[in-house]
Amino acid sequence: MTRAVRGRPRIVFEDVSVEFPVEDGRLSVVDRVSLSICEEEFICIVGPSGCGKTTLMNVAAGFEHPCSGRVTLDGKPIEGPGRNRGVIFQEYGVFPWLNVRDNILFGMRLRSSRVPASEQEAICQKYLDLMGLKDFANAFPKTLSGGMRQRLAIARAYAAQPEFLLMDEPFGALDAQTRSKMQNLLLDVLQREGKTVLMITHSVDEAIYLASRIVVVTARPARIKKIIEVPFAYPRREGLQETPEFGALKAYVRDLVMAEYEVQQQLGSASAGPA
């Protein structure tokens, strides 16, 4: 496999462990994870459901804090959520009381925004176009389909001009066709704007198609099982998924994930893990 030249490390996990209080003591969710997310890199974290992947993302976002080890952004500890890290949640979280346009403008209109008022409208328009939402600019989210809400969530996160995108199974709830369309759209946008992405997914296909590196994590508590460089150059085209190389890598990653899935199944029947 060819080793891609990576940019400088930005978000760095150093020996990070996370525990949650449960009825009978503490539940270890993330165990001594060390990982560097580098400039303009696309990292996918793959692992069985309930293993603690989302917790890793929450730590990078600043919603959770490690109980040992540390997470830094450009060397400074991450203390809370911030506008430089756009988060796209599994459940979208588009604001139902705002129409599509105002959802996109939300981040730019905040006091912490550095986008001058004169440019906001143009940026909003750009993402409306890019995400295919321009005919729905004045519609309320209740009238949008799942795929459109997801595109709106992405447009809103982008419009706030973050340096990082943290995505938690963003396409998990979409049908296969929409999902594939959204993946291509995401690759397209990233190609143009060059952002650093951390995506959580349980789809091995999605991880290989999108990521520059795949991090396979173990059953709970999440540890790094394997980091895999994806050898395919960007821009990627859909035909990639039919190539033998893709198939071989997929089989390899799938076996790693399936082994952990079996372990997690046994854990899962004992106690439900935190989301």
Partner: peptide, 14 residues
């Protein structure tokens, strides 16, 4: 749902 508060924090809301 607390999601709306979380989302607005990541967008930079005070």
């Amino acid at each position: 749902s607390p999601i709306f508060v979380k989302v607005s924090r990541t967008l930079g809301a005070s």
